[in-house]
Amino acid sequence: MIRSTLRRVTPQLIILALILALNMVMFPGFFHVEVHNGRLFGNLIDVLNRGAPVALLSVGMTLVIATRGIDLSVGAVMAISGAVAASVITGGASWIVAVLAALGAGALCGLWNGVLVAVLRIQPIVATLVLMVAGRGIAQLLTEGAILTFNDPGLVRLGGGTILSLPTPIWIWIGVAALVGLVVRRSALGLLIEATGINERSARLAGINARVLLIAVYLVAGLCAALAGVVVAADIRGADANNAGLWMELDAILAVVIGGTSLLGGRFSITASLLGALIIQSVNSAILMSGMAVEFNLVIKAVIIITILVIQSPRVRHWIYLLRASSGPGPMPRQPASRTPKIEEGRP
């Protein structure tokens, strides 16, 4: 299982390595990690830490996309959950209650999306657009338009604290990803989700409860978004309804796409999506470290992302394969043969 996962994510690992190498070329101290007041400190840690929100979102988004859906509302759900956590904590409750309330809000949002998609059969992109637009408004109502700040040490630790010297958000996203990944792959959930995403009609006729399954994946996406929202709010010790998670749903979708899960649903890999999230964060980090004029930020990001996606496109992969096959006696030829097996027609 580990070996097959490794084979599946090889392209993402290579891309990540290349971008980290690029970072290092631009900024030689990139891999330097040291301990500062009992806290691991360095660019690599930043990539892992800052990648947390998108990594969390990409876990839920991967499952949603595997069912041939999409969830545009996760950024807004982040704003809602952050606002809920901040209001509850400033109301005097403990940080655990605040986090549970935020998760509850996220679950509710996910349930809403799931019902629109699975029961009312509204196209996912339209169904989740509703909450994408309305959700930020709801968050603004909760915070009354201002940044609602808090200083509860428990809640703050979720964003800015450390556990065993490692920033808490890193533990959170790795933990959530491991939990979801384990549940999905150790149970039959992954198989049923993939079947539903590839051919929902066949899946239903095979006895899969596609409706419940769809609601469940949107629920998970909502929960992941809620957790991301809490992390982001805890990080700045305040709920910024206007900006928390703004456009982050697009980064999450991008992470899944870079991870190679098709937007048409089906086969998915949470690990690959997480690598996608880290790739995006490394690109962001490279831009920040480059010291280039800000006007180039988006252009550089676009160029890198486009390059990644082009290299991953089936057509280009095929060209690369042809190029390597023709340019000498590489150890290549066996692999593609096994990838597209020829099935012999059984004709007695």
Binding site: D235, I236, D240, L288
Partner: peptide, 26 residues
């Protein structure tokens, strides 16, 4: 020595400052 956009937000201000610190000798 360094100038980057923080999009007028707290979160981005924090993230960009982190990178400034790393890039300028801790």
């Amino acid at each position: 020595v360094r100038s980057q956009t923080g999009d007028f937000t707290r979160a981005q201000g924090k993230i960009v400052m982190e990178s400034f610190i790393k890039a300028e000798g801790g």
